[in-house]
Design a binder for these strands. Structure first.
Lengths: 235, 235
DNA sequence: GCTTACACGTGATTC
DNA sequence: TGAATCACGTGTAAG
């Protein structure tokens, strides 16, 4: 398709070519003898000038946007168009994943409990390898200490914790690393760690679930979003 | 400068124009009679073809990046180059501010304590008006209940809380609304609420600071990031 | 010299 | 029709 179009282009380009000399404002025959029919010159001159000026404006708009992109992107102040666009794509995807992670950490699913454990590749916390675990469930005081204890038995360490509550539910996000300075090149070991963490969180959550089931038989406390007591017993 | 360049361009374009016919692979004289000097034709043909092909590759790279941008940006599947770049800029800035806000909620400043209280205009939580308060300080167990108590006295309610810890420091983010269903159109009242919340948080933090100062005289516990005890007494 | 990148004018296409 | 967009080849400058 490209070759076809370009071939046709060249056919026409070599057969008819009207060049506008902007110095004199005249139209100069470039290649052939204006193809028989007498086309009124002024019309063509003006049309051609309008055309080229419109194209110039279009290019200016595009380049203006590219310049603003150069200013927006941190390190891409003097780059090729192509490299600039590549950098834009990179930063865009990076920001998109960051936003997804952030909003993921901000949302609290309403009903469904879930445990998510994934290996954090990028070494985000200065470590070459870390695990990001998130746990969403009903609000359960004392859950964090149990989780820490369980992870201690795996020789893992929570270097970062977030606890969010909304309407009687809670979501915790942990960043976990191994205490031992070990060789983390082994993908199997990574997967083993992920599975271990998932299992540990699952067991803790299950333990709390049954204890809450027992509690629920005596007092059915359902916390409204608007009740100020939803956070009262947080600490 | 633009006009100058374009004028010179057209001078040359109207005076010498060698057009490559890609069908036959030959060079065809377009405008004038090759300007006196006999330039060896094969060299010029090959150079010109290399040039045009290089330019074609460059265009392909740029357009490829533009296409990937079209796929990355949600609604910009079939847009102009200029409009596409405008959309890219928009989404880029939007994501940047979102990331700033998100990382603002995720980051824990290393040394400086701070209290920030601001009125949330957009009605983010289904309410027409809410307050977002963030508090960063040393890790202090039992701080949240004191804050809730202080806000209770102001007839305010925490509908959302986030507690993040890292390296013995903590950052809390609250979303606060008024218990009374009041007319929040009054900007003065809003500012009054913001000031009240700020003052309440300040008093609580000061109270904890002095108590911690007292505690620091007996046991100087400084928590390392890598110490698993940094979260041990969270609950 | 040769490659790379850019701006330009222009033909084609679409609305 | 005309206005707007695109791809193309080419002239030009920098490394």
């Amino acid at each position: 398709m490209d070759d076809f179009a370009s071939t046709r282009m060249n056919e026409y380009a070599s057969s008819s070519s009207l060049v506008l000399d902007r110095e004199r404002g005249e139209l100069v025959e470039a290649s052939v003898k204006l193809e028989g029919k007498g086309v009124s010159p002024e019309r063509t001159v003006e049309a051609l000038r309008n055309h080229s000026e419109a194209e110039r404006r279009r290019r200016a708009r595009i380049n203006s946007h590219l310049d603003t992109l150069r200013n927006v992107i941190p390190g891409a102040n003097k780059l090729d168009k192509a490299s600039l666009l590549a950098e834009v794509i990179t930063h865009l995807k990076e920001l998109k994943t960051n936003a997804a992670q952030a909003s993921e950490g901000l949302m609290i699913p309403k009903d469904n409990d879930e445990i998510r454990v994934e290996s954090q590749e990028g070494g985000l916390n200065g470590f070459p390898y870390s695990i990001r675990a998130s746990l969403c469930c009903e609000y359960k005081p004392g859950l964090l200490s149990d989780i820490r204890q369980a992870l201690d038995e795996l020789h893992l360490m929570i270097i970062r914790a977030e606890i969010a509550t909304l309407g009687g539910r809670m979501k915790n996000v942990f960043v976990i690393i191994s205490c031992k300075e070990q060789n983390f090149e082994d993908a199997e070991y990574r997967q083993f760690l992920v599975g271990s963490v998932h299992q540990a969180l699952r067991s803790v959550l299950d333990r709390f679930s049954v204890s809450q089931d027992i509690l629920e038989t005596r007092k059915r406390r359902r916390i409204s979003i608007f009740s100020s007591s939803s956070l009262g017993d947080f600490l």
